[in-house]
Design a protein around this nucleic acid. Structure first.
Lengths: 343, 343
DNA sequence: CTGAAAGCGCTTACAG
DNA sequence: CTGAAAGCGCTTACAG
């Protein structure tokens, strides 16, 4: 605020107060150019800026520098409890480096995705974090074509050479299957997530491969259209029509696991007495549910924070060895899995 | 992308392709000025813009118009499950009107709050939604002084004349207490949220007033410093030191209710057999927990969406009757409350 | 209905 | 170490 007018104070107001050219003020206030101005001058300018309540107009500097200090983040849906933690990791890391983050929900809808991307392009984002990638993703292709710094998180694409922070899905599924086999389960089903998503695809593949390796039946798989409670519910019922002798389920994620358990209860089946269930992601509060969900935990906050660090390095031209950072998940055994009993 | 250079295409590129002045392109592409350009010209310009993949540089238009089409949102913490739904309501409504939203977590820390506000000011936000208000809030005061359009959500301030979308806390607490009284509870305690927050304060006040009205003891209140599981846990233990004959608890919110239940279990007490518990907010998955939490449900998505509509009306100078929209909560009875039994 | 010019608030290459 | 000038890509009052 200026004392006279109601305009916001600019670099020119500060310059006038100190009695220098506004370009000197700009230099004094920018970390990168501050050392070209004499220390006393810098101090005088900082004091004047403080006194006038000056803060830089980011639109102006963005326009001039073609650099916005804004990062875009594309997620399917904030309301899915996997994402708040990932985003918190992104925001905390980005803000610490002076970046603002713009988040958009795509609901896994390609139109919304492109609208969001257009908005972000208009706002000249310096880089993009994508949690919505499909294995074949035209948006990812476009970012690469345009040369926009890009990092994937959680889901990856089939094509090579795209940076990202993902989970070792194979490791997680193997841990879950080993756990179930130790409990005596020999007939295990999989409620698979959508196959356009690397997470859905890789989990299903790991399921098949690992069971085959152990000479077990590996084709009790039902494919869901979305990673939702409703799809878990629907798919479980379909599975039951096909076969009713399985004693355990590996669900594509936690919300689908919840849907499965709901459907079981509706059918008069009990978890874990009749059927054991393993989820994936370890979303909030599931340790408190009845039964407490056995699941594969992934380091959500850390993934967001690592993805951001990776993106900032790309933006700043810092060389990096790892393109694809694969995080280790961890099986958390709770009470939705139990030893198999003869039926 | 331009075909020749690698610059982004601007209004001038479009103008050149069509053979008009760039100001004409600007007018043709802006809804507000489009009607001053001949329809054929508009069509030609739109086609050219499409062909060149033109999208407007928002930094430039923000700089010129002093209007960013960005809205700021201040929340305590994304990771608290009340907020994702509120924010989704905000984002969906804002995006439908062409606005972008900038969200920041403050962790109820005044320094972070002011840092976030500074960042948003630098980005020339057109308005601000504040979910972090304290009853006395210097940031709110500053927005008003500066004339920045402002709407509160969830929490209100003591001073009059500030717009907001809040909950009828009195109604919710009365419903909870009536429910408990019907179940025979006569000695009811309250784990109160922080009193700097209107929600913590009004819930505690409603608790006192309603019990006093029914000639019941109303001073079994323990005050928490934050709305967290940990504080619920700590405060419950303190309560137990003071008095151990209460049979029911009204918790300041759901997360504190979870903390209370944890602490009860640690003390060998059962919920609801020994002590009934009522939460507040109805956050996700609590219907699945054991016991399923009886709680006061608030319309989170709707609150976000209404707050945004209110803010956009203020920004656009649309007159509005209601300043403070008070939403009706609803008691949801589940299994964490039960009839009192003699001990 | 369209054009030409000025200016929003910065940054930065060029001088000195 | 500091100044003067140009320009980033838009919008808009002023002409015609």
């Amino acid at each position: 605020m200026n004392y006279l007018t109601n305009r916001k104070t600019t670099i020119r107001d500060v310059a006038e107060l100190v009695g220098v050219h506004h370009s000197t003020v700009s230099r004094a206030l920018n970390p990168g150019t501050k050392d070209r101005i004499s220390p006393e001058m810098v101090r005088k300018i900082e004091k004047a800026a403080e006194k006038l309540g000056y803060f830089p107009n980011i639109a102006a500097s963005t326009l001039k520098q073609n650099r916005s200090f804004a990062l875009g983040v594309l997620i399917p849906d904030l309301t899915n409890p996997v994402f708040p933690l990932i985003i918190r990791g992104i925001q905390d890391t980005a803000e610490a480096e002076g970046y603002t983050v713009l988040t958009a929900n795509t609901d896994d809808d390609e139109t919304k995705e492109h609208d969001a991307f257009k908005m972000m392009s208009g706002r000249s984002i310096d880089g993009l974090i994508v949690a919505t990638a499909r294995r074949q993703d035209s948006l990812v292709d476009e970012c690469i074509k345009r040369g926009l710094p890009l990092v994937l998180v959680n889901r990856r694409v089939d094509r090579e050479g795209v940076s990202g922070v993902i989970v070792d899905e194979d490791f997680g599924i193997c841990a879950a299957l080993d756990h179930l086999m130790h409990l005596g389960h020999r007939k295990i089903a999989h409620i698979a997530g959508p196959q356009y998503s690397s997470t859905g695809y890789e989990r299903a593949k790991a399921f098949r491969d690992h069971l085959t390796l152990h000479n077990m039946e590996a084709d009790l798989i039902e494919y869901a259209d979305k990673f939702t409670v409703e799809e878990g519910y629907r798919t479980f019922k379909q599975l039951l029509v096909r076969d009713n002798r399985f004693t355990a389920i590996v669900a594509g994620n936690d919300t689908m696991a919840l849907g499965c358990i709901d459907a079981m209860h509706k059918q008069g089946l009990r978890c874990p007495e009749d059927i054991s269930v393993v989820g994936n992601n370890d979303i909030i509060f599931l340790s408190r549910m009845n039964p407490a969900l056995t699941t594969i935990s992934i380091p959500k906050y850390e993934m967001g924070s690592q993805a951001t660090r990776m993106l900032l390095d790309i933006i700043n031209g810092v060389p990096r060895e790892t393109m694809l950072l694969r995080m280790q998940p961890r099986l958390i055994v709770r009470s939705s899995t139990a030893p198999v009993v003869a039926r």
